[in-house]
Design a binder for these strands. Structure first.
Lengths: 193, 193
DNA sequence: GATTAATTCGTACGTTCGTTTTATTTTAAC
DNA sequence: GTTAAAATAAAACGAACGTACGAATTAATC
């Protein structure tokens, strides 16, 4: 087996394992040693590649943001009119909750951390703004149906949509007991009449 | 000066200072020593009164939950019809962001923690459910206007409302720069037509 | 092939953490 | 007033933390 391809970049292994640790144990419960052990790497290598803890975690957030923006963009691009776009967005988060809840947990956890750590705050702001800009474009691309909403800025409406999806998703995750599925996230679609 | 009244219950001082520390520095950045110093009390007293860290923080969450449920209930009780009730709820969170943002940060922070700590999860579930039940009652008390929403369970609708308020409030806190005020939280009222 | 640079590792440092233990003071009961 | 109990304080414990450092290994350059 090829030596070069077998061992992929150590820094990427660390980054990937840091992502996994954070999304399965939570920000406050992950140490540098956890990640090093999980990656099968000497502890000092984390500092070698990423300088310090915040440097590593910052890269994890970048990774997360990229994944969200990319996936949501794809989801919105694959549907036609406004109504369907929002529906597909809701569908995306619904599937996220079921198939990849750790990614959503990571989002929620870093959002909370962003209230205290300035660098995280800048990043999470980027994520929320990126998402709402996508939604805003979706709203403008189709015909806005609800007259009451039309007279408000579509920017605010987009923030309401992503906010509702976010806040509702959290409640679903809190309520869910591994087996039952709760579906009130679908109601978000009702926001646009 | 009366000796008895001057020194109030030490356990309550600790609890109050723990609340303050958590809401100003964040869950992940507060230590038992921080709280002990802030309360002007020996470190060991925190364990004496609350057994351990989780025990103390649990009481802080209880305190927070009580405050939210009480204030929101008062807010909803003081208005008449459904539309006004939701509006007053939005107003309450709007004022919270401006006058007592730390209480909101505490909410957000503990919500994230609840994804990892079972005891917190149970409590936060209680808070979200408590809030949505209040809203649900408000919805039932008045006449439901939007026909599309009427046919869905009012329980889900209530969760959507509180979710939208929660998710939008987070974005406002992220965007706000100490000076400017953002007002897209008001859009939440539009959910009910 | 020797030399230099980049990478990886093991280890140890200094700090901070939550908790425990022991001693001292205050309170309450008799 | 003495004594037992509760409350408070001080100090120390062992563990875990993030980081830094020097040695060993690998890769690259000539």
């Amino acid at each position: 087996m090829d030596r070069k391809t077998e061992k992929m970049n150590q820094s990427q292994i660390i980054l990937q394992k840091a992502f996994e640790c954070l999304s399965t144990k939570g920000y406050a419960n992950v140490s540098m040693r956890d990640i090093a052990n999980e990656a099968g790497v000497a502890l000092s290598q984390l500092n070698y590649h990423y300088k310090n803890k915040e440097g590593l975690f910052t890269e994890v957030v970048k990774m997360m943001i990229y994944q969200y923006l990319q996936e949501v963009e794809y989801e919105l691009k694959s549907t036609a009119n406004t109504k369907e776009k929002v529906a597909s967005l809701v569908k995306y988060f619904n599937e996220l909750i079921r198939k990849n809840p750790n990614l959503l947990k990571l989002f929620i956890d870093f959002t909370a951390q962003s209230l205290w750590v300035p660098s995280f705050r800048r990043q999470l702001r980027r994520l929320f703004n990126g998402l709402s800009i996508m939604i805003e474009k979706s709203l403008l691309s189709g015909t806005v149906i609800n007259k009451n909403l039309q007279e408000d800025s579509s920017k605010s409406l987009a923030k309401l949509v992503i906010g509702a999806i976010y806040g509702t998703s959290i409640q679903i995750m809190l309520d869910s007991e591994e087996d039952n599925d709760l579906e009130y996230l679908n109601l978000v679609e009702m926001i646009l009449k």
